[in-house]
Amino acid sequence: MNEAIKLYFEKNKILFFILNLVMIIALLKLFQMLAYPKADFKEALTLNNIKFMLVGMDGELGGLALTFVIAIISIIGSFIFGSILAIARFSKNRFINTPAILYIELFRALPLIMVIFWVYFAVPIVGGALFHTKISASALTSALISFTLFESAYIAEIVRAGLKSIPQGQFEAAKTLGMSGYQTFFLIILPQAYRRMIPAIVSQFVSLFKDTSLAYVIGVIEFFRAATIINNRIYQSFEIFSFVAIVYFICSFSLSKIAAMMERKVQKQLHT
């Protein structure tokens, strides 16, 4: 009987989607009635509050929009720095690959909050040592630096795995055509490696998207912090954080489905 149900829903994907939607809404409503019967969403989720959480205050970028901006800038930055680290790791020169390995291992062993604290503590010191002035970075800059440094270590591993997955034959073919090491690397190997890495990088982006909520500790007014500000004002935690949870869920779930689709496409390409 279960086989029949499974087969039916595989053929009728739209119906399955509707079933899921109905079941999830029912379960959430059930949870709300049991856990917090006095929930008043209308009072908590006024248009102003929602606007603040999604786009921030007038004149500045904040809320969910800022969340996306932080995530995109950080993923680009960490992609560049992570690639450099991965390539450094491949070098035969010990003075190049050892710092890279140490960096990657260190940042993968640390919680993100600690990295955030490090950037917060280190910027005045580094600034003092390099520029002999007292400098401090804005909250947003600190956040971007922290996320970029942190994610770079993970991107570096993804790039490394991507480079390793290229069959030896590609290197050999390029050599027989007379290409130099650099030409081989940048014209043949790297483009192929990046195509294979895209699903993993999108996956990492989803992870980063969720991690932007940690910008809370720095004081950047992205989506999560905006919600906590409203919560501190009106103390309707259930309603506010339900909203936050659902918005994060929709964004993260959709992004991860896109990553899965890209993974399937890459698999198809690899097997033709």
Partner: peptide, 8 residues
């Protein structure tokens, strides 16, 4: 999985 840990 899709809701950030800090939010939970």
């Amino acid at each position: 999985r899709n809701i950030p840990l800090i939010v939970q």
